[in-house]
Design a binder for these strands. Sequence first.
DNA 1: ATATCTGCAAAGACTTTGCATGAGA
DNA 2: TCTCATGCAAAGTCTTTGCAGATAT
Lengths: 157, 157
Amino acid sequence: MPWKDGTGPPWLHGKFKGCGYRMTIPRQGILDVLNETADHLSAEDIYHKVHGAYPSIGLTTVYRTLELLVHTGLVYRFDFGDGRARYELAEGPKSIGHHHHLVCTGCGRIIDYTDFIEEEIELLKQTEKGLTKKYKFRVTNHLIQFYGLCEACQGTG
Amino acid sequence: MPWKDGTGPPWLHGKFKGCGYRMTIPRQGILDVLNETADHLSAEDIYHKVHGAYPSIGLTTVYRTLELLVHTGLVYRFDFGDGRARYELAEGPKSIGHHHHLVCTGCGRIIDYTDFIEEEIELLKQTEKGLTKKYKFRVTNHLIQFYGLCEACQGTG
DNA sequence: ATATCTGCAAAGACTTTGCATGAGA
DNA sequence: TCTCATGCAAAGTCTTTGCAGATAT
């Protein structure tokens, strides 16, 4: 479980350092933000949040750290089609577990859902197996998104 | 069925004009390219292809036309995470029908698959229904992508 | 000590916007 | 005719790269 004293989630430190990377203040800040905050943060969101605690951080560092985190698999990167990437801890601290996304094309809001996930996972697992066999494709990840209008945007027209 | 004389697919003309848009040479060229070519073209891909037959076309027009087409639902827009959007006719001329994507994170290749689609569609339909009820979210579209390494990229490491 | 990391500034890539000209209905 | 569409150029976003100084181990 994450420590609440601001030193950040220790298991992430471990994994990160285990990959041969140095743990620095900016990186710790980025991990903290990812760990503490609700999902779907853009690089700039993260930058602003870390900036509060560590004003000398640069946006470049955020991008570079996120690249590392995505590459090591600690963080997932999502494209919701609005021109900026969003980032999310692969393994949530609260064990949120697997979830997928509803993307509102009206206001850009993202809703996580975990409903029906088990059935989805089961089907995906089978599909994955079939695709691997047929296309010799080694699946490492998958993405399911529903696009549409959230409740608020349906009235707007 | 599409006419082969270069005037472009008539049903698209009809739909397009039915939406109140004018049919022009650049737009016709763009529709032709989308209709004739394999999937997943970027705006610039389309620009280059149309440019062959109609050299005075501008990239801006391609973007603006694609925006219209996506907005009217005649064309789907995909983000595969490589920083550029790809476009694909919503209703293929050869009735290719519904398909999803395998995205190779090594070389960027996109593989369409239609295998297991029926099961997927069935599950998605149910999920959609459930999500609509629970989140009052009006689903208009969905996206399923598998990420991983294609056969060629698995050897590369 | 030294290989790595950082922040700034500049560059790069994709997409959108402003505006005067040109074309469709 | 009269509105809509076009293309060029410029601007706007998000992201990446180059480099000298700072930092973690």
